[in-house]
């Protein structure tokens, strides 16, 4: 089941050669290590570009997004098996 979250998160990411690679995020004071970025796509809210990442941790799937104007990260949703 997919659960909508839409909450701000802190992310540690590598910015290299025009690419953004999220490595782990902190949500509700807990650290989640990202094992794999499985998908990436871009959207816009009005004129603001947003990059979306599908990521997996050891046990769960998450969708996180990065606002290229405000530089804020957000946990969009997660999958509970």
């Amino acid at each position: 089941m997919y659960v909508l979250v839409k909450e701000p998160i802190s992310v540690v990411a590598i910015f290299s050669s025009g690419k953004i690679i999220p490595r782990f995020f902190i949500w509700k004071k807990r650290k989640y290590s990202i094992e794999e970025v499985t998908y990436l796509w871009r959207t816009k809210i009005g004129s603001v570009p947003i990059i979306h990442f599908s990521v997996t941790t050891e046990k769960t799937f998450y969708e996180i997004s990065y606002n290229l104007k405000s530089f804020n990260w957000q946990l969009e949703k997660l999958y509970v098996a």
């Binding site: 499985t38 998908y39 599908s54 997996t56 769960t60 799937f61 999958y79 098996a81």
Partner: peptide
């Protein structure tokens, strides 16, 4: 298929 590529847990 796009969703299954995105989410390995539903493949």
């Amino acid at each position: 298929s796009v969703e299954q590529v995105s989410n390995p847990f539903i493949r």
